[in-house]
Design a protein around this nucleic acid. Structure first.
Lengths: 198, 198
DNA sequence: AAACACTTATGATTACAGTCATAAATTAGT
DNA sequence: ACTAATTTATGACTGTAATCATAAGTGTTT
């Protein structure tokens, strides 16, 4: 996450995206550094059968889509605003200038990518194994501890829908609904009028 | 990947690891930057049921295990030498000095992490969906195109065993064996005396 | 207030990867 | 050269998540 003052100094513009509007699409090369000023962004893929896979959901002040700025690769997923959002957009060349002139900022960017990679590695291990219970708990725990920094039991109320959880874990809605009920039986989550607490 | 001259300048040592020797273990904090001089390293997790999941397999001159050097996180997986290997080991503080004094090297490191994240995102989308065929082809194509830069049809002969593929994709050996045969029927791979070509 | 869309829910059935058992072929170790 | 270990292979059976069908509850829009 880069300071707004730096973003402004190097010529970033704050651009508005309507709900459901694409910020970039899979397989495109990167032209900008993006950082959320307000709103929410999801990165996703669509499988051959049309099923959605959500890579991640980001909110302010997080950046996203950096990898193709560094390496000669294309976006591995789409990015779409899930709500009306304002997003800082800094052209690639200006981004490079910024990194060169502000080594500490470069470190922060590296840090952000490192965290993302860490999350992906954790999730990959969970996705590879079969158990729906573990997949779902991993996502909830990640959001609880790593993103929201909550430690009290059942202190985290998720705003993900069952369908969201399904799309994040690669499961089906029905399976998520059923597994959440089993997890409630096992006292791993609480469900209070349809809201999931972890 | 950092130049050996830089590594030496900043006090790295080239350490020997025997086959099967651990370089670091899951949940440990990072103390060193690692870069393979020779040999091969795999990063893996063990599931609750003892099943192995291979996060990645690296060979010279690649670096690995950088994320916890940048962010306040622990290793998400174990790293183990799969063969007798020599590995450059640079203490964290020296690594930071190097990044500060050689911005171009910092960029290269960012690039390496970016590529890894890209691969993880691609694989996550495949792992989340069910089809064994796609999981296997994704791994093979990644190794063919991204790692070995081969473009000719069936020009890539993998040295992964069926078990390796199973551990990389989260499938079972039997499923990999059967799926590979189906893929051969569909002319997606060739199998010439047990070796898989893609 | 009505209409519509979305989310949660449940039951029945199916498909398919996992599991288990066993063995042949190949490679590595002494 | 012989033994042991690993890798590849196949068949039979099982378990479980996906699929399909249907509906109730909740929220949003006009």
């Amino acid at each position: 996450m880069i300071e707004e003052s730096s973003l402004i100094d190097f010529g970033a513009e704050k651009k508005f995206y309507a709900k459901e509007e694409y910020i970039f699409k899979q397989n495109q090369p990167a032209l900008f550094y993006f950082q959320i000023a307000s709103g929410e962004v999801k990165m996703n893929n669509y499988q051959p059968d049309g099923k959605e896979f959500i890579q991640a959901i980001f909110s302010a002040p997080r950046s996203f889509g950096e990898p193709p700025l560094f390496a000669d690769i294309v976006y591995p997923a789409n990015a779409m605003a899930t709500q009306r959002s304002y997003i800082w957009r800094l052209p690639k060349s200006a981004f490079y200038n910024l990194l060169r002139q502000e080594p500490e900022t470069h470190l922060k960017v590296s840090q952000a990518i490192a965290k993302r990679l860490h999350y992906k590695a954790l999730m990959a291990a969970e996705l590879a194994q079969q158990s729906p219970e573990n997949r779902i708990l991993k996502i909830l725990d990640y959001l609880k501890f790593e993103v929201n920094h909550i430690v009290t039991p059942f202190g985290y109320k998720t705003d993900l829908t069952r369908q969201n959880i399904a799309d994040l874990t690669g499961l089906r809605v029905e399976t998520v609904i059923r597994t959440l009920k089993e997890l409630e039986q096992k006292n791993e989550v609480k469900i209070i009028n349809r809201k999931v607490y972890r």
